[in-house]
Nucleic acid binder design. Sequence first.
DNA 1: TAGGCCATCTGGTCCT
DNA 2: AGGACCAGATGGCCTA
Length: 358
Amino acid sequence: MMTKHFGKSGNVSELVSSLSWLEEDGSSQDGDESPEMRSHDHGLVLGGRIRSCGELGSEDMEEEEEEEEDDEEEVERNGENGPKRRGPKKKKMTKARQERFRARRIKANARERSRMHGLNNALDNLRRVMPCYSKTQKLSKIETLRLARNYIWALSEVLENGQSTESHGFVEMLCKGLSQPTSNLVAGCLQLGPTPLILNKLEDKCGGQGMGDAVAGHPLSYPSPGLPSPPYGSLETSHLLHMKGFKASVYDNPSPNDCSSGTPSYDGPLTPPLSISSNFALKQEPSPHESERNYTPHPGHHAHYLSAHHFPSSTAGSLPGGAQAHPIFQASRYEVPLDVVFESFTPSHLVTSQMGTI
DNA sequence: TAGGCCATCTGGTCCT
DNA sequence: AGGACCAGATGGCCTA
């Protein structure tokens, strides 16, 4: 990371002097600064480039030189014959003023970093309550926000219209407007029942009501006003997870720590009132792929999402790009009708941890 | 190599 | 005056 900015500065003395930050505690908590950050705060390399003092407002000049400089500046401000510019004359940048400016800038930079870290922490917290969460493969910021919007939207439909979380439409809403890769991730994460047959049964079960109808049709195509361009806003049926019948009825709220290992505490409840993705427990032997990716089942109520190509090909349910979807189960969170579960998967996929609850 | 994503710095604006 | 917030600019990293 040190080379990040110094690579282009090419100033050895600056580099050496800034390396002194490495001698100190390099912890980078909120408010703390990484060595890289601190190098900036020394006013050496700014924004990936060396900034001359002139860029900061005025050259490093002696007091006696200022009169001259100001005259030149006045000419520059007014042009050859231009009208005199109104407003306060630019204040002289004495050394003392420069130092104050620099100190203020350093403080402001630190605050800004801290603010952005706080924002990122909040985004992480948001990621944790999303239907898909993985420490190893985070949703991008924009996709996190999109998914959050969709999640709220979908849950609202559940509450207001009795839309079933089992329905195809629920998942479609979740994926609406997401980029294709993210849709694939969400779909893969929530992939529960691979066959269209099951899907059809689900549709029947839901009576064809609710939002699922609004987006019914194959392949599915979502107009995404306001979204930049494809791949945003399109989704094919084969990309979707296939929700299986379950009722998110049991909701034993774990300790908030369940979802925040090694992360800043989160004040609000981490567990959403309803999570369509968390109703199945992954009890399969981890595939080599998953091991490689350091995939570990989330201890809380949130399912993980995995890149589609992480799914073992032995499982049914194709994802775009030749990837295979893999049913992800989550541990002991909700009561799930086992018949429904077994309807979807071979027994080898399943290990029930508790009677009637997986 | 282009494009996406990200962290950071920076200057401007608004508010206290 | 100083802090919060914002948007633009910049460069690094990663991936297709």
